[in-house]
Amino acid sequence: MRFEDLLRPTPKGLYCPPGDFYIDPVRPVERALVTHGHADHARPGHAHVTATRETLDIMAIRYGDDFSAASQEAAYGEAMTVNGVSVSWHPAGHVLGAAQIAVEKDGVRIVASGDYKRRRDPTCTTFEPVACDVFITEATFGLPVFRHPDDREEIARLLKSVGQFPQSAHLVGAYALGKAQRVIALLREAGYDKPIYIHGAMQKLCDYYESRGVALGPLAPATVDRAAKDQFEGAIVIGPPSAFADRWARRFPDPIACFASGWMRVRQRAKQRGVELPLILSDHCDWDELTETILEIRPQEVWVTHGREEALVRWCELNQIRAKPLHIVGYEDEAE
């Protein structure tokens, strides 16, 4: 069997002809296997969705209980058969519930890793490498300029600034699913025990993380009556990045704009967004982690789905590993 007969890119997403299913389809399909709950990978409107318990719950929180006509739960380490194709689920380390999906038939195994990262994250299960013939990787930070620093140093910089500017509120822009909870958990690990204020859009997901055993400490809604602006002096406020451009942000005293993202590595990116304190925190692999993962798994072929495909493909060529870009449209690499 040729690899492309088991899994191939189509305009709707990665398609498995023998199993008649899609992985992370970008348009409504009959049967979808979903790696994780970010909106560009988990879309509503499919007839049938298979995903981890957490991913299904997150889809229900975001889209309502009727996000698909039928759903099926998969667990890490579990193998299932879909129309004669074996499908197994493995932790991806990206956000709570994120999975790699291994698809196998007639001795050929392809792993679609979705979005993944290698470093420790107190809010989700760590990535597990799975031996395979074809490894499908993202390349969101697939350029050798992206080398994420230690998380703890970034959190320490935030806490230092909070100490330096006690009259200001530090507004931390963070993606509502995954990044926000990770920033909170890392702050707690660094010993910060004051209430952390969160934007309304994050409440349900933070509650959900707590219900799955991820301790986030005292959280309070970042809503105030107009009289009590000073209650946010010295506070850390976490909200979706878009909210800080919004009228919502005007309630805070002398706000300092922070943004937790791998893109913050590039100064001009930070400057363009008006970020004053960039925090380089990513839920994706950096360049070293991408290339080390490929060397560790040693697949026969590497397929690159989204991000800086050409650079990672070039690196594979230089290392005599067969590789090609899949050019799947619909995944936003800016969303982090």
Binding site: L143, P144, V145, V266, R267, Q268, R308, A311, R314, L318
Partner: peptide
Amino acid sequence: VDPVLFGYSYDFVGD
């Protein structure tokens, strides 16, 4: 560094 990878990176970063 491989000049091609450097070129991609320079294009992206711009400085």
